[in-house]
């Protein structure tokens, strides 16, 4: 138990007892809660021999190994010549595709959404609020209504089996504009006005005054956008799923690995290792930006 945490209420004993009980509760709960992830980590470090001969035990009989990760990236033929469905190691391609798509989408969406949010917050023009309200209505229309025509749309634009098919369609979304606008509204109007009086153009105000203040919300929206593409499965399956494996995203590849390795001797570890790889990037980002992320998520629940 972390004793070094400073407790503010040392004097009050009942509260401290209370605190101890809650801490114990969280320790137990969080262990169970996070256990599936631990199970994945542990399983990904068990050799295929272990999985084949003793799938039941948690701990390995033959020791921990990075064999599964090696198989994923370098390829391997343990036990005969099975390659776990990893023809020519497309996992590197999957990771790259996912990364590229997620990053491009994030950057583009941030630019688009910030520009629009700026207009909806700081520019005065007739019909502004009506237009915004109209756009907001679109948020109530569920994405599923668009699935079929969006697929056709993407085909018509010549984007089939193209990474842009998963980058572009999300860019028309309004939720990010809404979130950023919420934040912009907190920026004192006087700052913007005084900059304008100094003769700065709107674009300069946008770049030099508003954006620097909005780092945290940009970060959060960026993470949301990133995750929406990185974690997407359903849409990617429709537009990329039927193409060559090398065009896939990591999530498509991962589900494929789970399916194809069902019933293959000792393949469990490889599948688990692939899952771990898909979790790593978001986990690392989280580690570095925990505070921002938590604050940002909380922001989505704040009324203007």
């Amino acid at each position: 138990m972390p004793k070094n945490t400073v407790s503010i209420s040392r004097k009050k004993k009942p509260i401290r007892l209370n605190k101890l009980a809650v801490t114990i509760f969280f320790a137990i709960f969080c262990f169970l809660w996070i256990f599936p992830v631990l199970y994945l980590v542990n399983g990904s470090l068990k050799s295929s021999l272990d999985w084949a001969t003793n799938p039941r035990s948690f701990f390995p009989d033959f020791g921990y190994t990075f064999e599964n990760f090696k198989i994923l990236f370098v390829g391997g033929d343990q036990n005969g010549a099975y390659d776990y469905g990893l023809d020519a190691q497309p996992i590197t391609a999957w990771i790259l595709n996912s990364l590229i798509a997620s990053l491009i989408h994030t950057v583009l969406y941030l630019v688009i959404a910030c520009l629009a949010a700026y207009a909806f917050t700081f520019l005065k023009f007739k019909g502004r609020d009506a237009l915004f309200a109209l756009l907001l209505v679109s948020m109530a229309i569920p994405g599923v209504m668009l699935t079929t025509p969006q697929f056709e749309n993407v085909l018509k634009l010549g984007l089939s089996l193209n990474i842009w098919a998963i980058i572009l369609p999300g860019l028309g979304g309004i939720s990010g504009v809404y979130l950023i606008r919420q934040f912009f509204k907190g920026v004192p109007n006087s700052l913007v006005e005084s900059a304008k009086i100094d003769g700065a153009s709107n674009f300069r105000v946008f770049c030099q005054v508003v954006l620097p203040l909005a780092k945290s919300v940009l970060f959060v929206q960026g993470l949301f956008s990133f995750m929406s593409v990185w974690n997407d499965y359903a849409w990617a399956q429709i537009v990329l799923g039927y193409g060559d494996k090398k065009l896939w995203t990591l999530q498509l590849g991962l589900t494929y690995l789970v399916d194809v390795n069902k019933g293959q001797l000792g393949s469990t570890g490889v599948t688990m290792a692939a899952s771990i790889i898909s979790m790593l990037p978001v986990f690392i980002v989280y580690l570095f930006a925990e505070r921002n992320i938590v604050e940002g998520v909380a922001l989505t629940g704040v009324k203007n």
Partner: peptide
């Protein structure tokens, strides 16, 4: 040479031949 899993084989071929003949 490229590989296709058996359960997606038919749909992958139909989809590409119909939608994306170049690939």
């Amino acid at each position: 040479r490229a590989e296709r899993r058996h359960d997606e084989f038919s749909s992958a071929i139909v989809n590409t031949v119909v939608n994306d003949p170049e690939n």
